[in-house]
Amino acid sequence: GPFGLGREALPEEVAAWNLDIAPDGTGLPEGSGTAEDGEMLFSESCAACHGEFAEGVGRWPVLAGGFGTLDRMDPVKTVGSYWPYLSTVYDYVRRSMPFGAAQTMSDDDVYALTAYILYSNSIMEYDEVLSNETFSEIEMPNADGFIVDNREEAEAHFWKDEPCMENCKDAPVEITMRATILDVTPEETAAEEAAASEEAAAEDTAAEAPAEETEVAMAEPDPALVEEGEGVFRKCKACHKVGEGARNGTGPALNGIVGHPAGAVEGFRYSNAMQDAAADGLVWTPEELGAFLAKPRDYMRGTKMSFVGLRDEEEIKAVIAYLSTFE
């Protein structure tokens, strides 16, 4: 070029980064997969946030369903109900998912996961093969649901020769809605926040007091079970950290959680439900923790933990064994 700066990109460098896939399929790698292949993968790598059936967990994205809701209040926008191009699903999953471990899936795995998401939306059959060959045969339900920005025509009346200055409304102005009624605004000043955290700290102390008596003696966990638990914990990792330097995230850090009082991790803002349970002296014995992990929202109505729960008794045991290794 004119400045002679930079160097020519090598073909393997372009290949490594040039991953985007266009709506017409340009850029799709060779490969294939079915929903059947994708089901376990989805359960292991995606379900912690998106739900076992792609129904979404908490505020994480819902991937399935929502058909017929786009013209209603609070439409449910999913791959099935909203996304106009299948290429976007493959492109996004391959480059950016799973959350925290992007670009770790093989191309075949991404075909299988894409097929599973389509199956969850009743767009593909369970054993139907999705591949670079069959890709263009899939029809996305909302493909025709988009128009190009038409503000300059549809909103032409917002361009005015002269804005109104006098008598701009027909009737006297009245307040029709107030934000304070909802009361969803975060606390405003640092002083208030400090006061709140002092209060929380005081509550923590209160909750800890009975704990010393009730602390549970733990047997050394089985190493094989711990290893299995580490695998299970992948479902928890997006929200919970453990190990050296673990900090609170969406959920509290979990070092030392097994056998310790509930609702007592410093600096974490618990739900009222968890605070009440802590005040009542709840301690996370393996039994209590197991019951919580099986069905969090049934165990504790109003918990902030949006995880659907671990269905398998063995997984629960394993993850508790794993957690018990962190002091």
Binding site: I21, P23, L70, K77, V79, Y82, P84, F146, I147, V148
Partner: peptide
Amino acid sequence: QPIESREETSKYTDTLADGISRK
């Protein structure tokens, strides 16, 4: 051609009252 990535299809598109969305 536009790539129509996740951020320009599933997000950052504006759904109107009739269910049609502006992109």
